[in-house]
Design a protein around this nucleic acid. Sequence first.
DNA 1: ACACTAACCTGCAAGC
DNA 2: TGCTTGCAGGTTAGTG
Length: 268
Amino acid sequence: MPELPEVETTLRGIEPHITGHLIAQFTVHNGSLRWPVTGGISEIVQGQRVVAVTRRAKYLLLQLERGSMMVHLGMSGSLRLVDPSEARRKHDHIEMLMSNGKCLRYHDPRRFGAWLWSENGHRQLDHLGPEPLTEDFGADRLFLLSRNRKMAIKPFIMDNHVVVGVGNIYAAEALFRSGIRPDREAGKVSRVRYEKLTVNIKDILQAAIVQGGTTLRDFVNGNGEPGYFQQTLMAYGRGGQPCYQCQKELRDIRLGQRSSVFCPSCQR
DNA sequence: ACACTAACCTGCAAGC
DNA sequence: TGCTTGCAGGTTAGTG
């Protein structure tokens, strides 16, 4: 799944083909997602115009005339624009036929994703921290929020209350570039190192967006094309292999049930 | 408030 | 060949 760059890539791929058009038909083939999607949703959204498509954290928001649909891709979700005549694949759970003839298909083998309709906002968005690529996210915030926190720094920067959009891949990469061990206690990292980390988080996310995201197994953008950022990964997925900087063997430890690769020599 | 675990589900690779 | 195990991009709900 999709971290922030993959969601942003998806947004840019589908937005121009969706915005301004009517939802002609909305079909739920399998509504057993994180929260059940009932067939009744179809009657509500059909006939409504898509006013805008935006992103908040890893959520996509389809703004309709009388409310909004919040879409999350979970771990294995993807959205693709297809010709309606194209055969539906296994795990294509939801499809949205637009008045311009385009069909948006939601594919999600693990079904950790979500499609939620609301007329007046989504409570999931209420507690979210700042967007990483805006001025609202800076080193001061990381430094202040981390004081007296015993938690390891990697789960700390992956906490959506702290900052959104930093998932397992980009957390590992940002810490590698910053020379910070992922298991370092968040409250003991200096302000100077948080400044470096902040810059690296922003740089990496931005670079990944430019390259169309990271495709590990099956991520595709709105047009079915893969991303290329995986060619840039220095740490993620490289446990046991030599560090590109010092040739020492990269270690793979578990933090908060997530694999965390780092270089014991370059990261302290 | 904080720290930590288990859970949701399918697919795939590795090991026996 | 098959069976079992563990792991995978995220988030929430529940425990102390």
